[in-house]
Design a protein around this nucleic acid. Structure first.
Length: 743
DNA sequence: ACGTGTAAACC
DNA sequence: GGTTTACA
């Protein structure tokens, strides 16, 4: 038996008969199709008579499996309990066996006899990576037999490493020609493929030729990654169905004889909001990532997906399409797995009893103050860094440590909960290295000289930030595997205490509060130096026992009046410029996803002009320049020459088009699209241009971006009004004489 | 398979 | 005043 030694990266892993297919890429970019034997296990616990019956049933299933007495740590109690370990020899049988046990359980009438299942609802790649201590994109050395069977894997990499490398990937970019509009929501356009710096447009040819050209492109370049725009909901399904119809092969997969895996689209209701997940097309031995169908790609680029895949041990294609919540849950499950903690199948712990007075106190969330209205100079900002995760680590907040059976004296402020002092919780143990890794990336980012390296570190730290934020959110989510509402309440209770402590400290030092919200303070004492702020931050950190950082001093900071209550400012809508020249924008048009790019561009340009102002007088004297800028944009609008794409407003549907009661613009356009045969699911985003806001016939008020043509014009007056609003937030009361009113 | 509260814009 | 969407 010849034996080859390979060095390289784990690229893709999925179950095949008797084990896992493992695709490996070596430093020269060569791909290796390997096999690793693997038999996944799950655990069953519960009353022994019940357990015996169930186990004797599954042993009669006629599937190769082994049942062995074993033990594991129960998550909530921390006690070691006896369980039966069921090992399924063929991974392809695994889901079947688990399902049998679950259906058997559901048939039981007597609920008190219900069995507990553990480690049973993980995906096979996750189970494989957890049990073999490997992870996606891990660099390792592999001993391979002559049939591609893996004999030995030596890991030369760690998920917690910050200086890892990514294999050399050949990337094919796949999209429809032109602007990035959902292909279902516009007319037909030719396919555009870009690879190795060349762009190919497949245009004006038959379906057959399209498939043939696409196949030859795949054969010629053999890409590792197909990076598409709308590949999940449109391009791949169309290619696949034409190939099927014409009886042609379509070699999207590297694994021969495997069909492309399809996941159906779905809309689901989650806490009063409809979320839409587009259908997905996943490949075997090759990655397909739709940049329009990935939260992580759109917020952190590919580096964030790689970082998350390595830490969560979820394969790259799946990670790109899943939520950060699923990612962090997988990281937590991995930690539990390594410590022999049994991973609960479903959350069964009922919420602890809460009295009415507790209810009033505990459900308050973070503190929010009403900011001081208007224009301010010399305001300093202090932010608690990763406040919620720091609190969870510092106070040992975790579902199994909150209201433990032992430490009744270790009370959470305000609310009646207490926390364990004896056992370190899973969540803090998971968070500590995550917080540290993000700190490291932020430091590396500052030190890096190469801008490309800087970008990579920035994307990775930003991915970890999403992980940290979600960990807090998940504590309050009723179906979270490792979450508990009481833990959520404890975190916000501590956060309020910290902010109040910080507030009274700065006020005692003679600072005036301009604004404070959750983890951030904006304060002023005329003439305070940066060094004095740094000293103040140290003092607060010492008192509060969690780190607060000095962010900078604002040359100016403006809280515009609320539109519904002009006497008050709103906490979520402001803009300012630090002495460093950096701007901070919150809640204004330029930050909103439903603002047309034309308006965004105009507002950002006006803010850019204002960012030169160092104080009130300068701001006031620059305002005429802003007015000039505004007029330039206004004239462009009036000329009628602004492209529709720049005027498009994008919004998410909250219901099916026919269910809208009011003829809002989004309802009008959703119905227009539906009439054109576009299938729209709640949660999907649509884009439209306002054609005539006051048209008597609702259908004339707005048109879908993808179907609007030169016969239509846009509503100049309406867009001018939007532009004026974008200007207005920049004009503080008392300085407004320079602003131009349009009407 | 992410929370609650709030603002704002429209019909 | 109700409905709808978006943001922190």
């Amino acid at each position: 038996m010849t034996r080859k030694i390979l060095k390289g990266w784990i690229f893709d892993v999925y179950p095949v008969y008797g084990g896992m297919r493992l695709w490996f890429i070596d430093p020269s970019g060569q791909k290796h199709r390997l096999f690793d034997s693997f038999s996944p296990s799950f655990y069953v616990g519960g009353p022994s008579s019940q357990l015996k019956k169930t186990l004797s049933f599954i042993s009669r299933l006629n599937l190769p499996l082994r049942i062995k007495p074993s033990e594991g740590i129960e998550f909530y109690s921390g006690e070691t309990i006896p369980v039966a370990r069921v090992t399924v020899f063929n991974p392809l049988d695994y889901a079947k066996v688990v399902k049998w046990v679950i259906t058997l359980e559901n048939k039981k009438e007597n609920r008190s006899l219900t069995l507990n299942l553990y480690n049973c609802d993980l995906s096979l790649p996750q189970l494989y990576f957890f049990s073999k201590d490997l992870f996606p994109l891990a660099f390792c050395e592999i001993g391979v037999g002559d049939k591609g069977e893996i004999q030995k894997i030596e890991l030369m990499d760690l998920p917690w490493s910050t200086d890892y490398t990514i294999p050399p990937l050949s990337v094919m970019h796949l999209k429809m020609e032109g602007e990035s509009i959902h292909p279902d929501q516009c007319g037909p356009r030719p396919l555009e493929i870009e690879i190795e710096g060349t762009t190919h447009v497949i245009e004006g040819v038959s379906e057959r030729e399209t498939i043939e050209q696409f196949n030859s492109m795949l054969a010629r370049y053999d890409p590792d990654l197909i990076l598409s725009e709308w590949g999940d909901p449109c391009i791949l399904p169309q290619l696949i169905s034409s190939a099927e119809r014409l009886g042609l092969p379509l070699n999207l997969n590297r694994e021969p004889s495997r069909k492309v895996h399809s996941r159906k689209e779905q809309s689901y209701f989650s806490y009063g909001r409809i979320v839409h997940k587009a259908q997905a097309r996943l490949l075997f031995g090759r990655w397909h990532i739709d940049v329009c169908n990935s939260f992580l790609v759109s917020h952190t680029e590919l580096e964030g997906v790689f970082e998350f895949a390595r830490l969560s041990k979820i394969p790259v294609q799946q990670m790109a399409r899943t939520s950060t919540g699923t990612g962090i849950t997988s990281m937590q499950m991995d930690l539990a797995f390594q410590e022999n903690i049994l991973i609960p199948w479903r959350k069964r712990e009922p919420e602890g009893f809460k009295s009415a007075s507790q209810l009033l106190l505990s459900d308050k969330g973070g503190l929010t103050y009403t900011p001081k209205l208007g224009f301010h100079e010399e305001v300093g900002e202090l932010d608690f860094a990763s406040m919620y995760p720091s609190i969870m680590v510092k106070y040992n907040i975790s579902p199994e440590t909150i209201n433990c059976r032992c430490c009744f004296d270790n009370l959470v402020p305000e609310i009646g909960h207490h926390l364990c002092k004896k056992r370190k919780g899973l969540i803090p143990r998971f968070l500590k290295p995550l917080l540290d890794k993000r700190t490291q990336y932020k430091r590396l980012m500052k030190e890096a000289e190469d801008p490309e390296q800087k970008r990579i570190y920035d994307e990775r730290q930003s991915a970890l930030k999403w992980g940290l934020v979600t960990t807090f959110g998940y504590q309050g989510y009723k179906n979270a595997r490792f979450g508990k509402i009481e833990a959520h309440e404890a975190i916000t209770a501590y956060s309020r205490e910290k902010l109040l402590q910080a507030k009274s400290l700065v006020e005692a030092e003679g600072f005036e509060m301009i604004h404070a919200i959750v983890d951030s303070l904006m304060i002023r004492k005329w003439g305070t130096s940066e060094a004095a702020y740094e000293a103040l931050a140290l003092k607060i950190s010492a008192t509060c026992e969690i780190p607060i950082a000095f962010e900078g001093i604002f040359n100016w900071l403006h809280f515009p009046p609320s539109k519904s209550n002009p006497g008050l400012a709103t906490p979520g809508r402001y803009l300012g410029v630090y002495r460093s020249g950096k701007t901070k924008l919150r809640g204004i048009e330029a930050r909103r996803s439903d603002t047309p790019v034309f308006i965004k561009r105009a507002q950002l340009e006006m803010i850019e002009i204002l960012s030169a102002a160092r104080n009130r007088e300068a701001y006031q004297s620059i305002l005429p320049q802003v007015t000039d800028c505004f007029e330039r944009y206004r004239d462009k609008l009036r000329s009628g020459q602004v492209p529709f794409f720049d005027l498009a407003i994008s919004k998410a549907l909250s219901k099916a088009p026919s269910e809208y009661q009011k003829a809002s613009l989004i309802a009008i356009v959703a119905n227009e699209l539906a009439a054109r045969g576009v299938r729209l699911m709640p949660g999907q985003t649509i884009s439209y241009v306002i054609t005539e806001m006051k048209a008597r016939v609702p259908a004339d008020r707005a048109r879908a971006l993808g179907f609007i043509d030169g016969a239509w014009g846009y509503d100049v007056e309406k867009y001018e009004a939007l532009l004026s609003e974008a200007l207005e937030v920049l004009c503080p009361v008392g300085m407004s004489t320079h602003s131009v009113r349009v009407g």
